[in-house]
């Protein structure tokens, strides 16, 4: 029997190596299934927790145009969460169970959303930096080995293309505005810069899952490679905005062909991941509250559907 599993394992890996996708009903190693449930649901949770910091600015958006674009963007995040939960459900776990894991603290979500959105400029910085960082991961994931995940990512990437532009445009308006606005933009960039770099996860030497993840094409690049790519693409954008660099150590390194940048505060990273960031408790309790308050609504809809069904059968 053990030999059999080994053979299946090898065939499975060969299938991935040859660029074929794995579909929900295909045989897969238990670890593949578990890892995917963990990763996809974590991604889904990040989308819906990510609705909260931006969501709190919809009612305060400074113009009608900004209001509708922000609302559409936050709503899209809900949609993206939904696509990802759907992909995850094909692995044989229900959305309710996934919510349960989120609410109990068992499942994680991206730590970036545990930082507060305190000024309007944060709507710019979040769209530009946070979505910018996320999209790098997501573009990569359109080629991941698990079919439903890859297809969800294709749809998400298509829809996300306006999100980052929306954010950058907000920053641009601020930077072309008054001194007060420009200051607001700078202050926001300074606050979001480091957490954005942390979004790519721990340094490669401390990242436990990287090797396996690359084998299964959950990752095509390492955390540090993506982080470097993000810095390289973002520094010229900061300059284009006419803002000061948020890190004095940022400097072009001719030899490497990349920007050097300063040391990330990993203590802060682990503290926030561990639950002690500025908004961890707030975010989780907002999610739980919405879910608990909605329980009677969900039950009512089911009860109504059952009644209607039995009425139909009686006819």
């Amino acid at each position: 029997m053990e030999i059999d599993i080994n053979r299946l394992d090898l065939e499975f890996q060969a299938k991935i190596d040859s660029g074929k996708t794995i579909e929900p009903k295909d045989w897969m190693p238990e670890k593949y299934r578990k890892t995917h449930i963990r990763q996809i649901s974590q991604h889904a949770h990040s989308e819906i927790v990510g609705m909260l910091p931006e969501g709190n600015w919809i009612t305060r958006a400074p113009s009608m145009r900004r209001k509708v674009t922000l609302l559409a963007k936050v709503q899209d995040e809900g949609g993206h969460g939904l696509y990802l939960y759907s992909a995850c459900e094909t692995l044989g776990i229900s959305r309710d169970e996934l919510f349960e894991q989120l609410h109990s603290g068992k499942a994680k979500y991206s730590s970036i959303f545990n930082y507060p959105a305190v000024t309007w400029a944060d709507m710019g910085a979040v769209g530009w930096l946070v979505d910018g960082a996320a999209i790098m991961n997501q573009v990569m994931l359109t080629r991941t080995s698990f079919g439903p995940y890859a297809r969800a990512m294709v749809r998400i990437c298509k829809e996300e293309s306006f999100h980052q532009r929306q954010g950058f445009e907000i920053m641009l308006s601020l930077c072309n505005g008054t001194a007060v606005q420009k200051h607001m933009a700078q202050e926001s960039l300074n606050r979001w810069w480091w957490p954005s770099l942390m979004m790519f996860g721990p340094r490669d030497e401390e990242s436990t899952h990287t090797e396996q993840a690359i084998k299964w094409k959950i990752k095509l690049k390492t955390n540090d490679e993506l982080r470097q790519q993000f810095v390289d693409q973002t520094v010229p954008q900061i300059e284009l905005l006419g803002l000061e660099l948020p890190d004095p150590a940022i400097k072009w390194n001719e030899e490497r062909g990349h920007y050097d940048f300063g040391a990330i505060d990993w203590d802060e990273f682990w503290r926030v991941v561990g639950g002690n960031g500025p908004c961890n408790r707030e975010r989780l309790s907002a999610r739980k509250e919405a879910w608990e308050k909605g329980a009677w609504v969900r039950e009512a809809a089911l009860a109504y559907a059952e009644k209607q069904e039995s009425l139909r059968e009686a006819v």
Partner: peptide
């Protein structure tokens, strides 16, 4: 893709709201 819904009517509406934005 897929949606959750209590009945067919709601499933159509949810599909419209989620997948034809």
């Amino acid at each position: 893709g897929s949606v959750h819904a209590a009945d067919a009517k709601m499933a159509l509406e949810n599909a419209r709201d989620v997948y034809t934005r």
